[in-house]
């Protein structure tokens, strides 16, 4: 698509969506959000980039292969379950770290894995579909 306005605006939108998606990923534990929605949103950000500036520009922004992103997410989710095996005897029984009212632990790592897997998966679809499109 050859639209200067969309193209200029898309960079800003992309950055905004990526930041918001990370925020949504993080806040998911206590408020609406989480890795799945976050991943979808980030993918939408890349999709806007692909729509405005072409699939090559979007791919450059991803830097790594979308399938690798997906794999990294799966591996991270899998690894986040291992500590639970050590002292709680159960896969994916999460470890927690507390500082006052702040709680975090391997559950966040698992959610990041979900985020990456969803992002990589949707990106694989989007990049392929836009690739098919003849350059205008």
């Amino acid at each position: 698509m050859n639209s200067l306005i969309l193209s200029a605006f898309s960079r800003f939108l992309f950055a905004l969506m990526l930041v918001v998606s990370l925020y949504i990923l993080y806040r998911g534990h206590n408020d609406p959000g989480g890795g799945f929605v976050g991943g979808l949103m980030a993918a939408a950000g890349f999709a806007i980039l692909a729509m405005a500036d072409g699939v090559q520009a979007a791919r450059r922004m991803v830097r790594v292969h979308p399938v690798a992103l997906m794999g990294a997410g799966l591996v991270l989710a899998l690894l986040s379950g291992l500590p639970g095996l050590v002292n709680r005897g159960s896969f994916l029984a999460h470890w927690w770290f507390h500082a006052g009212d702040f709680h975090s632990g391997t559950a966040l790592a698992f959610d990041i894995g979900v985020y990456l897997a969803v992002l990589g998966g949707i990106l694989a679809l989007i990049l392929r579909f836009y690739e098919e499109q003849p350059e205008a």
Binding site: H29, N30, D31, P32, G35, L92, G105, A107, F110, D111
Partner: peptide
């Protein structure tokens, strides 16, 4: 599971597998 968002806690903890 130290989370107030029950949906997400189910997703990443109770039924993470």
């Amino acid at each position: 599971a130290f989370g107030r968002n029950v949906v997400n806690v189910i997703l990443v903890d109770f039924r993470a597998i």
